[in-house]
């Protein structure tokens, strides 16, 4: 039996059918949305000042929150991967809280925290509640959790031996990490940044609850979809959705091209 015929068993054909049906469903979902409207309508919707503001704010806040997430994820991911300390399992679990909490609850927790005396003090220095900084913080809370997970995996897969050798050659631990380990994690850092960016782009619940959905102020792409839908402008809502799909696909392809997985 040829190698090709060996695959043509009911078992493998069954698996291929399941995978094929799921893929067809995904393609049908995006395809039907893409063909529901015309390029002219999409262009017109995206050209409105509100949506243009929303695109700009989304790009700026997603990039800023992904950078902040990476700044947190590199040291915390390293600590979780290489550190041996009491309470590590607890810290590991606690850092997953933003991932498992319902998004609306994250928003509500942020809102309530900024009603406490510590929160009010912070709010007086940098106003977060119902501001652009609130959008950024809501995105950061979720994006950082995913970035930390990714960076931990990156450090787990990287041998600590070169770092040990660097220390015997004259480095402190910090120098060894900076000079030897971090340059080897560039692809992983790009993946962590991209994941945080993509999560921030899709963030909706916490932003709506904590930063509001004020046009030309705290409106980002996900809130645009919601606002346009609530006022019955399906085409505009769809146009923004397709833009978000395109951005998400770009991130997915870029990360895959770098040889990493989301």
């Amino acid at each position: 039996m040829s190698a090709r015929r060996a695959w043509l068993t009911p078992f493998w054909i069954g698996l291929a059918v399941v995978a094929g049906l799921y893929l067809a469903f995904l393609v049908a979902l995006i395809g039907s949305a893409a063909t529901y409207t015309t390029p002219h309508q999409i262009w017109e919707s995206i050209g409105s000042p509100e949506i243009r503001y929303s695109i700009g704010l989304s790009l700026v806040t997603c990039t800023a929150s992904a950078l902040l997430s990476l700044l947190l994820a590199v040291p915390v991911g390293y600590l979780l991967s290489r550190g041996r300390f009491r309470g590590k399992a607890l810290l590991d679990t606690a850092l997953d809280i933003p991932i498992v909490l319902p998004p609306m609850v994250v928003g509500l927790c942020l809102l309530i925290f900024f009603q406490t005396s510590a929160g009010k003090f912070i709010d007086r220095v940098v106003p977060f509640t119902y501001t652009v900084f609130g959008v950024l913080l809501a995105q950061f809370v979720i994006g950082a959790a995913f970035a930390v997970r990714t960076m931990r995996g990156v450090f787990d897969h990287l041998s600590s031996r070169p770092e040990d050798v660097a220390m015997t050659l004259g480095c402190s631990r910090g120098q060894a990490v900076w000079l030897v380990t971090l340059p080897a994690t560039q692809r992983g850092m790009f993946a962590a940044f991209s994941i945080a960016w993509a999560r921030s782009l899709g963030e909706f619940g916490p932003i709506l609850v904590f930063a509001g959905a004020t046009r030309m102020k705290t409106e980002v792409l996900s809130t645009s979809v919601f606002l346009e839908l609530t006022v019955g402008r399906l085409e505009a809502s769809l146009a923004v959705s397709l833009l978000m799909v395109a951005l998400a696909l770009v991130v997915l392809v870029a990360v895959r091209l770098m040889g990493e997985k989301l």
């Binding site: 041998s159 031996r161 070169p162 040990d164 050798v165 660097a166 220390m167 015997t168 050659l169 004259g170 480095c171 402190s172 030897v180 080897a184």
Partner: peptide
């Protein structure tokens, strides 16, 4: 380790 004046060659070389 940095102050011990040693050279260390691990099993797989552990090149940077």
């Amino acid at each position: 380790p940095a102050a011990r004046g040693i050279g260390y060659v691990p099993q797989d070389g552990a090149l940077f």
